[in-house]
Amino acid sequence: MKHLLTAKQLTRDEAELILDLTGQMAEAVTGREVPKLPTLRGRTVVNLFYEDSTRTRTSFETAAKRLSADVVNFAAKTSSINKGESLKDTALTLQAMGPEAVVIRHPSSGAPQRLTQWVDGAVLNAGDGTHAHPTQALLDAYTMRRRLGGIEGRTVAIVGDILHSRVARSNVWLLSELGARVRLVAPPTLLPADIGTWPVEISYDLDASLRDADAVMMLRVQRERMNDAFFPTANEYARLYGLDERRLGLMPEHAIVMHPGPMNRGMEIAARVADSPRATITEQVANGVWVRMAVLYLLLTNGDAR
């Protein structure tokens, strides 16, 4: 594996290897005197972020630094990106620095795949448009593995704005590859057209979807979507598709509540649900660092890297 562009590209063996490595990374660093490994010393990882995302950038940066890599941040606000330089020209500029890996977040679906043609190093997709966010799906899978003891045979409901969600598009493929039963729950306006071939069940009814769910993953829904007639009002959306305490009560005792963040409290998730012990939201953030360490390790030590 030279790049990590999508969750769909991962075979079950590859995904499980990454999840195993994730656990080993967590063990290798947790509770140590020096929470840092020399593994990637002398390597350069560039964070190329075309969207503001402090949390994802920080997570990648922490992961790279824990492995002793040098990190260069190319953020939209502090570089020439704002001056209208093309992705290609930026890539060629980066290439001159010779990074072993480029972590890219970009509003245009497919931008990381394009980038692979212009840089020699490994390309890690940190979220592209509404396409993919593979490390998010991996950290979600890792969280489920830890909380539910496994993924095979578990039922996962992904709820909300599937249409605009790269998180959903990555989780659908990864979780089903790992043997989960995946159910998408959303109003028809927020489901992509023509997903008959996806390995998912589809439901418009959240209540009915919760009773047998081992995990429910709530997606962020932008209030502004109502201006494009995806739903009538934020209130109606919250009433029909928001996870509140009553609905939490419909779920099995062991079931967990996940959210990739950032949350709209009161919209897709009630504040009390978000803060309940069954919510794994902060755990997901912590696991994100381990997953990204595992992926960086995998991509930069596989003999393909220069």
């Binding site: 290897l17 195993d20 490595l21 080993q24 990374m25 063990e27 290798a28 593994t39 995998l298 930069l300 030590t301 596989n302 003999g303 890297a305």
Partner: peptide, 12 residues
């Protein structure tokens, strides 16, 4: 690590 194929991690 740079020269060898991927190595699995063992536990410590």
């Amino acid at each position: 690590l740079r020269r060898r194929a991927l190595r699995p991690l063992g536990p410590t």
